[in-house]
Amino acid sequence: MNYAILVSAAPFSTQGAHNAINFCEAAIDAGHRIARVFFYQDGVHNASALACPPQDEPPLTPRWQALHTTHGTDLVVCIAAAQRRGLLDEDEARRHDKPAANLAGHFRLSGLGQLAEAAIEADRVVAFHA
């Protein structure tokens, strides 16, 4: 089955983001496809290149990136939600005249239309909230 995933939970603040990545990895192991994960609301913080959790709290970002590099999952971060919360790629940082970019590799910024499209095309939509 082809799943579209919505992640609205920030990493660590709640269990939501852990549940989301655990679900995605388990679904792929079971032979399903995760075409796209859409990060919205506080979920955009999962795409930060600057998160440094303590050593005994394994980071989630590399696990998301592995979904993209190993399984081709499209990791899309809502651009409006990201800008509001200070998460920018190089282009946006330049465009808004900000001193740095902090979007992690293998994630991309785009609009809510990417979530709409994924929800229309997927067999199932699963949302992970805070």
Partner: peptide, 19 residues
């Protein structure tokens, strides 16, 4: 909370996609 505002944004985009 911002939930309502971000939820409505999604509603409008889905409608714009003809859903």
């Amino acid at each position: 909370h911002l939930d309502g505002q971000e939820g409505l944004d999604l509603a409008l985009v889905l409608a714009a996609f003809g859903q």
